[in-house]
């Protein structure tokens, strides 16, 4: 996984509005021997490859492991930074600020809702959701069209996070893993419900600050029929 320069695709203009560039200027790759595509599927998703899946499988095991971790392994400053980032992440979703929310993620990010309680290998079992940056942008864009009927009117949400744990990634100095439990109260068209579970994260220190690499949302009832979860969990 390579670090990309975030500044090229995420611009904040003078008014403070955020623009997320969804199409790059350069032509999309057209390998020889293939039918030319009339569509330009940017930003490309080269990073989701075999080693990446191997890594996600390892991450998933680590996040869900019933470990007893020592308190000392993360310095206080990092702890506070991560705690704050995760609080902001949840709040921006409660505020429907999806484009701003995506700024908290590295370019080569993952948003993952497993369909089984012990998270499966993504190469063998379908997920409830598994998105790279491009598909997250699809979803944000779709919600903004004014025609996404499953979110008209939109869900209102309030998230409660508790029991945060943070520990260093085994493979990188600039990376941490974290998890917390959540309850997510949701209301829409006069009906309220509670979603609950725990979220696992991979976080990385980048040139543009601390960012989220992976968010894995583990619903306690992920293997039972779900309601309308067409917002972001």
């Amino acid at each position: 996984m390579e670090e990309l320069d975030e500044s090229q695709s995420q611009l904040e203009n003078e008014k403070g509005e955020i623009k997320v560039n969804t199409r790059s200027e350069k032509d999309s790759m057209q390998p020889k021997g293939l039918e030319p595509s009339p569509f330009s599927y940017e930003p490309c998703s080269h990073y989701v490859d075999a080693p990446f899946y191997d890594w996600l499988t390892e991450v998933s095991k680590d996040l869900s492991f019933a470990d007893i971790r020592s308190e000392e392994v993360v310095d206080e400053k990092t702890w506070r930074q991560i705690e704050r980032l995760l609080a902001v992440e949840a709040r921006l979703l409660d505020q429907d600020a999806f484009e701003r929310w995506l700024l908290l993620y590295v370019e080569e990010c993952v948003y993952w809702i497993p369909s089984e309680r012990s998270a499966h290998d993504l190469r063998e079992t379908v997920a409830l959701e598994f998105h790279d940056r491009r598909r997250l942008l699809d979803r944000v864009s779709r919600l903004g069209t004014g025609f996404a009927y499953s979110q008209i009117p939109p869900s209102r949400t309030a998230r409660q996070l508790s029991g945060l744990e943070i520990w260093p990634s085994p493979d990188r100095e600039d990376e941490w893993r974290a998890r917390y439990s959540f309850t997510l109260a949701e209301t829409r068209v006069g009906r309220s419900r509670i979603l609950a579970g725990w979220n696992g994260f991979v976080l990385r220190q980048t040139s543009s600050g601390l960012k989220i690499v992976v968010k894995q949302i583990n619903l306690i009832d992920c293997d039972s029929p779900q309601g309308n979860n067409s917002f972001f969990l």
């Binding site: 039918e35 009339p38 599927y41 998703s45 080269h46 075999a50 993952v110 491009r134 598909r135 699809d138």
Partner: peptide, 18 residues
């Protein structure tokens, strides 16, 4: 026309093509 080309892009689409 190519059904593959028309698919909404999936995560890892480009690595798969390679």
């Amino acid at each position: 026309n190519s059904a593959w080309n028309q698919q909404r892009p999936q995560p890892g689409r480009e690595s798969y093509v390679e």
